[in-house]
């Protein structure tokens, strides 16, 4: 199982993928809001979304798991 984690502290603004969606390396899967910027979180590996851990509006720390891939 591969995990996509938050690159920095912030708020989860948009979740772009749902369970079952295929994801390619480099695809944006979540957009964080942090330091007044929209921060796209890119997939660091490819796979299929098995679990969306984060919810929109969540306040997350750096390295918090956002999405899990197969």
């Amino acid at each position: 199982m591969k995990k996509i984690v938050s690159p920095m502290a912030g708020t989860v603004w948009k979740i772009l993928k749902s369970v079952g969606d295929p994801v390619e390396y480099g695809d944006a899967v979540v957009i964080l809001e942090s330091m007044k910027m929209e921060i796209p979180v890119d997939a660091t590996s490819q796979g299929v979304v098995t679990k969306v851990v984060a919810q929109e509006g969540d306040v997350v720390d750096q390295d918090t798991v956002l999405i899990e891939l197969s």
């Binding site: 690159p7 920095m8 942090s34 330091m35 007044k36 910027m37 929209e38 921060i39 796209p40």
Partner: peptide, 9 residues
């Protein structure tokens, strides 16, 4: 800004 908003870490 493409990465971590370009913020200084």
């Amino acid at each position: 800004s493409k990465f971590k908003g370009g913020v200084l870490f």
